[in-house]
Design a binder for these strands. Structure first.
Length: 440
RNA sequence: CGGAGUGUAGCUCAGCCUGGUAGAGCACCGCCUUCGGGAGGCGGGGGUCGGAGGUUCGAUUCCUCUCACUCCGACCA
């Protein structure tokens, strides 16, 4: 992509309404634009990141055996009357009436709808286990939206639902998602620590929140420092095997959000120099809620013994749009965003320090074509601005690599390769620079 | 939902207290000089001052209502 053709409305000034760093940087980098309170448009740069995250989430869900479908944003109220949540959910649910005076709602989540789909098609234990997910926009009419897309009213969430015959099988489905989440967050370039969580209004007795540690996080969290060194299972993991050793490893140390925090236990279990008390951002939440919805909505299956039982369910969510902000909170510096490579909107920003200079133009065009041909996503700053502004913009939008091409270097046949995260620069020949960016 | 604020140019803000018909910086357009970490000069375009009502000879300014947005608190991916 050439910057002269790319819609990238960066801001020099910080918009007054933005309080936290991810919101400020997303606005300044031209990633989002507010429409109304808690509702945003995603501009091209932000949308690219959102899609990257979505795709990683999708790949890991598929690998763990979940199947993607797509449910609507608008749901009929009757479904929610069946579960009893139409009245329980309160004003956070956006209620709509259609032209025939039918009560509808903009879905804040999809337990009812997925249960309805399930009960309409599944009758036998032979069709289990089943795990269905979608990545869809949700709407929760928060009293007080804030922090940009971190707590918007409209947000993109991956939510999935597992269906099993009995508690043991349901537990395995839960464990699969636990492991899939470890892998997902690792690939997204963040440390997300599973913390025992309250099940809240969704119900059930098994639940973990996945929390990214960040000073600017919304809630206080406490955990053992060992978690920072834990490594997620690699891609060769087999989801059909017993996953409990992995779960045990990841849950053996203390980790709790403030509402579940037990100071006495924390101090007893964690040596003083290993205690982490900081802030965190919840980016994922998994629940096993048993038969809460299947009982209420009559989602039963016939077991091998000929007895019909309500299906055991779990639900699993990742805040995809929130991840964008959470990653920025966890990865930025004074100059701007520092994208992990896996979610970066482009891998490389090529800077033409002197657009209009024949040698520079030729060199960057050549680099641009070669990197593009090698499948590297490149943003070429071919604008005729000054060097300072170009450096500042490139640092702000946080692409992992910058390739700086100027007349001074070209005279001696070199360009400068800068790594955004470390700030390290090296002078290389054009060929060597292209090689460095196309290997791995 | 309780509390506190803010709405003036695309953005950041001044002007309002003490009414007299709107400004700066950045951004944008043109020209010139610059040209490796957010340059400078000259010229130019852009605002029915959130909206409605009221007071007044006259309202961005004072009063009332209203809408929107932000922040702090309680709740959530």
């Amino acid at each position: 992509m050439r910057m002269t053709q790319f819609f990238l409305p960066v801001l020099k000034d910080t918009p007054a309404e933005a309080q936290i760093v991810s919101h400020r940087l997303m606005l300044r980098a031209g990633m989002i634009r507010q429409s109304s309170a808690g509702i945003y448009s995603w501009l091209p740069l932000g949308f690219r990141v959102l899609k990257k995250i979505e795709q990683i989430v999708r790949e890991e869900q598929d690998a763990a055996g979940a199947q993607e479908l797509l449910m609507p944003t608008i749901q009929p109220a009757d479904l929610w009357r069946e579960s009893g949540r139409y009245d329980d959910y309160g004003q956070e649910m956006l209620r709509i009436t259609d032209r025939h005076e039918r009560d509808m709602l903009f879905g804040p989540t999809n337990e009812e709808m997925i249960t309805e789909i399930f009960r309409g098609s599944v009758r036998s234990y032979r069709q289990l286990p089943l795990n269905l997910y979608h990545i869809q926009w949700k709407f929760r009419d928060e009293v007080r939206p804030r922090f940009g897309i971190m707590r918007g009213r409209e947000f993109l969430m991956k939510d999935n639902y597992s269906f099993d015959l009995d508690k043991a099988a349901s537990r395995h489905s839960y464990n699969k998602m636990f492991v899939a989440y470890l892998r997902t967050f690792e690939r997204l370039g963040v440390k997300a620590i599973p913390m025992r969580a309250d099940t809240g209004p969704i119900g059930g007795d098994m639940s973990h929140e996945f929390v990214i540690l960040a000073d600017t996080g919304e809630s206080e969290v406490y955990c053992h420092a060992d978690y920072l060194d834990f490594e997620a299972p690699d891609a060769s993991i087999s989801y059909d095997h017993d996953l409990t050793p992995i779960i045990d490893h990841w849950t053996k140390c203390y980790a709790a959000t403030d509402e579940m925090h037990d100071a006495a236990r924390f101090e007893a279990e964690v040596p003083e120099d290993r205690r982490i008390a900081t802030r965190g951002i919840e980016v994922g939440h998994i629940f096993n809620f048993g038969t809460k919805y299947s009982k209420a909505m009559g989602a039963n299956v016939m077991g091998a013994d000929g007895v019909e039982v309500p299906v055991e369910m779990g639900s699993y969510g990742i805040g995809v749009s929130r991840m964008v902000g959470a990653i920025i909170e966890a990865s930025h510096d004074d100059d701007g965003i520092i994208w992990p490579s896996s979610v970066a909107p482009f891998q490389v920003g090529v800077i033409n320090l002197k657009a209009g200079d024949a040698d520079c133009d030729k060199a960057v065009d050549d680099i641009y074509d070669k990197l593009g041909a090698a499948g590297v996503e490149v943003l070429l700053d071919d604008t005729d601005g000054r060097a300072g502004g170009k450096f500042a913009t490139m640092d702000l939008i946080g692409l992992p690599w910058q390739l700086i091409v100027g007349p001074r270097g070209l005279k001696s046949g070199v360009v400068e390769l800068k790594e955004r995260r470390t700030g390290e620069r090296q002078e290389l020949s054009i060929e060597a620079a292209i090689n460095a960016l196309t290997v791995g």
